[in-house]
Computed example of a mutant assay.
Amino acid sequence: MTVEKDKTVIQPPKTILRVLHLTFNMGIGGTEQVIRQLVQGMESEGVESEILCMDGQIGSIGETLEKSGIPVHKLARKQGFDRSLIKAIRKRVKEGQFDVVHCHQYTPWIYGWLASLGTQAKVVFTEHGRFYPDRYRYKAMFVNPIMAMLTPAVVAISGATREALTRYEFIPKRKVRVIYNGIAPLCRSEFESKKIRNELGIPEKAFVVGTVSRLDPVKNQQMMLRAFRAFSEVHPDSYLLMVGDGPDKAMLMALAEKLGIDGRTIFTGFINKPEHHLSAMDVFLLSSHTEGTSMTLLEAMSLGIPAIATRVGGNPEIVVDGITGILTDSGCAADFSNAMSRFAENKQLCEDFSKASSKVFTEKFTQKRMIQSYIMVYDGSELLSTP
Score class of each variant (00 low, 15 high):
residue 115 A to L: 10
residue 343 F to S: 03
residue 355 K to L: 14
residue 128 H to M: 10
residue 259 L to E: 15
residue 9 V to Q: 13
residue 99 D to F: 04
residue 41 G to K: 08
residue 287 S to Q: 09
residue 70 I to F: 04
residue 134 D to G: 01
residue 343 F to I: 01
residue 255 L to R: 02
residue 356 A to G: 10
residue 363 E to R: 14
residue 288 S to D: 06
residue 114 L to K: 07
residue 129 G to L: 01
residue 263 G to V: 06
residue 140 A to V: 01
residue 161 T to H: 07
residue 169 E to R: 11
residue 9 V to I: 15
residue 86 I to G: 06
residue 8 T to H: 07
residue 143 V to P: 05
residue 333 A to N: 09
residue 54 M to S: 11
residue 205 K to E: 15
residue 349 L to P: 07
residue 80 G to N: 11
residue 333 A to C: 11
residue 43 E to T: 10
residue 122 K to W: 01
residue 326 I to K: 06
residue 386 T to D: 14
residue 4 E to S: 12
residue 350 C to V: 15
residue 308 I to S: 08
residue 315 N to V: 00
residue 355 K to P: 09
residue 156 A to N: 01
residue 12 P to Q: 08
residue 214 R to T: 13
residue 116 S to R: 05
residue 318 I to G: 01
residue 287 S to A: 15
residue 255 L to K: 04
residue 222 Q to C: 11
residue 220 N to G: 08
residue 32 E to R: 08
residue 141 M to L: 12
residue 324 T to H: 03
residue 352 D to S: 14
residue 110 I to N: 12
residue 43 E to N: 08
residue 210 G to L: 05
residue 218 V to Q: 13
residue 336 F to I: 12
residue 174 R to Y: 10
residue 204 E to Y: 08
residue 99 D to G: 09
residue 14 K to P: 02
residue 222 Q to I: 13
residue 10 I to G: 07
residue 87 K to D: 15
residue 344 A to R: 00
residue 270 F to G: 06
residue 70 I to D: 00
residue 72 V to L: 03
residue 326 I to P: 00
residue 269 G to E: 07
residue 138 Y to A: 04
residue 253 M to R: 10
residue 21 H to Y: 14
residue 174 R to V: 12
residue 302 S to K: 05
residue 224 M to T: 12
residue 202 I to Q: 02
residue 286 L to R: 09
residue 236 P to M: 11
residue 155 V to S: 01
residue 146 I to S: 02
residue 4 E to Y: 05
residue 156 A to S: 13
residue 212 V to N: 01
residue 251 M to P: 02
residue 319 V to K: 05
residue 81 F to C: 03
residue 106 Y to E: 13
residue 251 M to R: 15
residue 261 I to P: 03
residue 7 K to A: 12
residue 69 G to F: 04
residue 320 V to M: 09
residue 21 H to G: 03
residue 329 D to G: 09
residue 327 L to S: 08
residue 346 N to L: 10
residue 143 V to C: 06
residue 83 R to T: 15
residue 144 N to T: 07
residue 250 A to P: 02
residue 239 Y to G: 02
residue 298 L to G: 06
residue 218 V to H: 04
residue 110 I to D: 12
residue 220 N to F: 02
residue 240 L to K: 00
residue 91 K to C: 04
residue 115 A to S: 15
residue 69 G to T: 09
residue 291 E to P: 11
